[in-house]
Amino acid sequence: MLFSGKNIIVTGASGDLGTAIIKRLICQGANVLAVDSDDAGLSHLVAEVSGAGVLEIFVADVSNGEEVLSYATRAFALWGPVDGFVNNAGIQTPVRSIVEFPEEDFDRVMAVNVRGVFLGMKHVLPRMRDGGSVVNMSSALGVVGGAGIVAYVASKHAIIGMTKTAALEQGPRGIRVNAAAPGPIACRMTFKLADEVFAGSNKSFAETVPLRRHGTPEDVAGLVSYLLSDDSSYATGTTHAVDGGFTTG
């Protein structure tokens, strides 16, 4: 019961990573407000999740300031000060070179992946308990480059910069702000990207990592649980890889 009585917000809740994170937190006793723009996905999540904790859902677009303020306010109204925040919502676009990349696709990715993380911290941090923890979901591609996915790479690099800034600002309150950087995880987003990158072949991203396998959403959930917990009480402003060694070389 690592998070018994703790109040945690998770965005991007109905995706593969969000679902795995929430399942773990609920089993560890947390009260979780699950946020996503996909109403049907949230309803499916409710049917899947069970445990000692309490699950509440909230439909919101993380790129909309008023809706972000609404979910932050809702969490506070439900349980009081927030103890943990997992800024997980993110999107990807089809693979295109920079010179062919549509401006509207670039703007859409930055709106969700960057503006969403910024707005989340802007509105949740004032409602967070001193000593709380924020985990921003970056990526292995926030550490290295990746051809054909300029918006995604730029957005995930930006998240690491915002994480460092927030850690400096919130340190005096004892609030820790860290980034998780997953590599090739067995989830819908990874497989969709692989279909484009390796089209016409039998290759997969698993071949690009030293461990020669995809990670699992549960691998990411384990890291997030650690970063939210007191076990990481002296870690802030850092980026933690869970990528099978993808960024080692």
Rank of each mutant, 00 (worst) to 15 (best):
V112I: 09
R108F: 08
H123T: 09
R115N: 07
T163E: 05
V144R: 05
L119D: 07
S97E: 11
I98Y: 08
V153C: 09
P102H: 09
G171Y: 01
M128D: 04
V124R: 01
R129P: 09
V144N: 04
I160W: 05
M128E: 02
Q170P: 13
V135D: 01
V134D: 07
M110K: 13
G142S: 03
A179G: 00
G174D: 03
H157L: 05
Y152S: 09
M121F: 10
E104R: 15
L168A: 14
A179L: 08
M162I: 10
M137S: 12
P126D: 08
K156N: 02
N178W: 09
A140G: 14
V153F: 06
H123Y: 15
A147M: 12
M110Q: 15
R115M: 06
M137A: 13
M128W: 10
G174H: 02
I159H: 11
V112D: 00
V150H: 06
A158F: 07
V109T: 15
L141R: 14
P172M: 08
K122D: 00
E100V: 02
A147C: 11
L141Y: 15
L125D: 10
Q170N: 15
D105F: 12
S155V: 08
G174Q: 03
P172I: 03
D130Y: 11
H123P: 11
